[in-house]
Design a protein around this nucleic acid. Sequence first.
DNA 1: TGTTATTCTTAACGCTGTTAAGTTACCAGA
DNA 2: TCTGGTAACTTAACAGCGTTAAGAATAACA
Lengths: 202, 202
Amino acid sequence: MGITEKRARHKEAFRREILDSARMIFIKRGYDGFSMRKLAEKIDYSPTTIYLYFKNKDDLLFAICEEFFETFLTELNRIRSVSRDPLRTLRQAVLYLINFGLLNPDQYKLIFFTKSVYGTREELVEQETMARNTYFVFMEIVQECIAAGKLRKLEADVIADTFAIASHGLVAKSIFCANSAKGKNEVVALTLVDALLRGLRK
Amino acid sequence: MGITEKRARHKEAFRREILDSARMIFIKRGYDGFSMRKLAEKIDYSPTTIYLYFKNKDDLLFAICEEFFETFLTELNRIRSVSRDPLRTLRQAVLYLINFGLLNPDQYKLIFFTKSVYGTREELVEQETMARNTYFVFMEIVQECIAAGKLRKLEADVIADTFAIASHGLVAKSIFCANSAKGKNEVVALTLVDALLRGLRK
DNA sequence: TGTTATTCTTAACGCTGTTAAGTTACCAGA
DNA sequence: TCTGGTAACTTAACAGCGTTAAGAATAACA
């Protein structure tokens, strides 16, 4: 192993360390509560060192989002490979996302309710991100439901949006609204998803 | 009219002016983009003067939220007085909220996705705010639907939450997700609400 | 006119993201 | 082993932020 290679490895590992520390602070203190100086202190380097590994604060957030979508995409493919019933696949996919949000509200908020890290739709399509890939796979699942005659023949993106909305709304409510029914989030989740499936079934 | 009364009136008017200017900046630039210094410049006073009329930045946001819930509550009562069919009332109420969100995404974001200005559930119930009153009226509408045998006999707060979630999710998606189907928000809104009503109907 | 309360401003503290410039550490070639 | 260059990192600074303490100006009343 050459020395330049060793250096590259160390650099990669250091980038990882920065990213992991950043995620912890982001999740714990929120977007505003996060600061480059706090991150610097945590990793025991000066604030400016971070800029050698990430373009800026939002670039750190982008990297964190991409990592989430990577695991989400993996999970989608797993669910898909296990179940052959597309409607069941769809239900499990949505419930997975909701469950993640309810278990990790701060991270969900960070990823979905903080900044439009992926820009406009055109930029997203061009950019070859994990977020884009995940959205495409999700659309495929919905289209399989329609093709199998399990869902009403609405446009696939409308239905896909509808389910994404369910998750977003549910988690948003549990995060932001103090007057939401505490401890009933799981009940509401099932009520919501199954009501939607019932309402959209052929 | 005494002079002290005149002063009180002027003070009230000035407070209004500050609040209106604050809302403009908040909506235009978001929570982070808003600053006390920018507000001060807009109203042509020093930053510290604002603190004589509002406790701090979040107190300004609270006042803006309360004003929204006041108009929303008025609208809820209007819809209710016009229509006798509770299910139709519920549908219109939800669509009003969604429509407001789609037309005023920045303000919706500010009110629902920025900070938990109303604290915990206990604090909300104690505090006698417009937000609390609005939530109670919304719950009443749902309960009327159940009492009239139009909805499945789930717990009222679960159903109320489900519809609030629909609105939150839809608007959240249109705000934050670049990959949402642009220009189709109205279609998605109707699909979502009617699917829910269909799914929750008795 | 003198006293007092109200209203507003100046100055400051300790934060923030980010950049420019300078310093140290290390590796390659002679 | 010495030297040149580069990669890694730091110091210092700019302009902005929310908020507070203390002082100045204004207006109301005696």
